[in-house]
Amino acid sequence: MQTTDEARTYPFGAADRLNLDPLYAQLRRSEPLTRVQLPYGEQAWLATRYEDVRFVLGDPRFSRAASVGRDEPRTHPRQNDSGMLAMDPPDHTRLRKLIAKAFTARRVETLRPRVTEIADDLLTEMASKGKPADLVEAFATPLPVMVICELLGVPFDDRHNFHRWSEAIVSTTSLSMEQIQEYIGSLHAYMGGLVAQRRVTETDDLIGAMVRARDENEDRLTEAEMIQLLAGLLAAGHETTVTQIPNFVYVLLTNPDRWAELVADRSLVPAAVEELMRYVPLGTAAAFARYATEDIELGGVLVKAGDPVLGSLGSANRDEKVFDHPDELDFARESNPHIGFGHGPHHCVGAQLARMELQIAIDALVRHFPGLTLAVEEPDLRWKSGMLVRGLKELPVTW
């Protein structure tokens, strides 16, 4: 076991498309727990092996609530949100239970026909406008936005505003601090307006259900918690899927044998989505440190009480000890216990919805456009920067 006394600068370098920095593999072999210094905040430990990352995310001795009031390690100047992401059970459980019912596997499956209909309509319209087309604008953005709008009860006509405001949630340097505060304030004010409408006219959507839960059981949910929760659901409920659909399609089109595999056998789509969740390192860096509440041995190192630990999901999902040939895209992988949606109490509450949307998106593209290809050379694609997540600005395609 090797450890360095001097903290490494982290992230290790600028995000290179969807490529995972090779230093992660080196660290998994020789230094699975290493000291890092992010652009902002205190030094932290970085866990790179699957077993350690999963342990940090799931063991109650590693706390998110302990980050409150600390100079949390982060890639952006603002302190991380103090909402659900900075809570531990039982406070976190209290809020999560209120929204988890909307995202159960059974509830999500009832939405599948409607989401398929939306996807088909969008692709039919894209085809009617002729090629080439920007898949981000024509398909990847409106699909998750329409779904989350229908689920929550948010007017789709307002999508351009709240999609723009949602960038504040995933921005590191793409927005100024003033813009981030303005956008988050606008998002919360917007959601507050929708909440006020539900008190005049009851609805059966998720906003209506949350308002009733708040007004009938005030001890369970404060007004501020409810608005923050709903704003977070609106933003997170579409932002990452908007990004992942083009990421997945980019990987498939730059691995044409895998695309051809899906065209030949669409039954592989669910397994393909799970493999792409493992393979694509969505985050540009590990985030949301967990603080040790007592001395704990991790990865052969003693982590002292009060130390923050970051877990790299991208590195964990490429761990050679868990996944055979981890740097290859393999839809026939027998075992795929990836943690692309996280793990533990903060496992993505919308994971089932995201899975379903991604499955439908890929399946619909394969059905409508089996000859889909990039409309530009791969080096000419433009990638977002200054964000917590990796993603394409646009994805020109032809068929």
Rank of each mutant, 00 (worst) to 15 (best):
E6I: 14
R8H: 10
L18C: 07
N19K: 15
R29M: 02
E42C: 11
W45N: 00
Y50F: 07
D52N: 02
F55D: 08
V56R: 00
P60V: 07
S82Q: 14
P90T: 06
L95P: 05
R96V: 06
T104C: 00
P113Y: 09
I118V: 14
I118H: 13
A119W: 15
A127H: 04
K129Q: 02
P142V: 11
L143R: 10
H160K: 13
S171A: 15
T173N: 01
Q179I: 04
V211R: 00
R212N: 04
R212V: 07
R214K: 04
R214P: 00
R220K: 11
M226L: 02
V249Q: 14
N255S: 15
R258V: 08
E261C: 15
L268F: 07
P270N: 04
A272I: 08
E275P: 07
L282C: 10
G283R: 13
D295M: 07
L302H: 01
K321M: 10
V322I: 08
H325T: 13
P326Q: 01
F331W: 03
S335I: 06
G340A: 08
P345Y: 03
H346N: 06
A351Y: 04
Q352C: 13
A354W: 00
A361K: 09
I362P: 13
T373L: 11
W383P: 03
R390T: 05
K393D: 15
V397H: 11
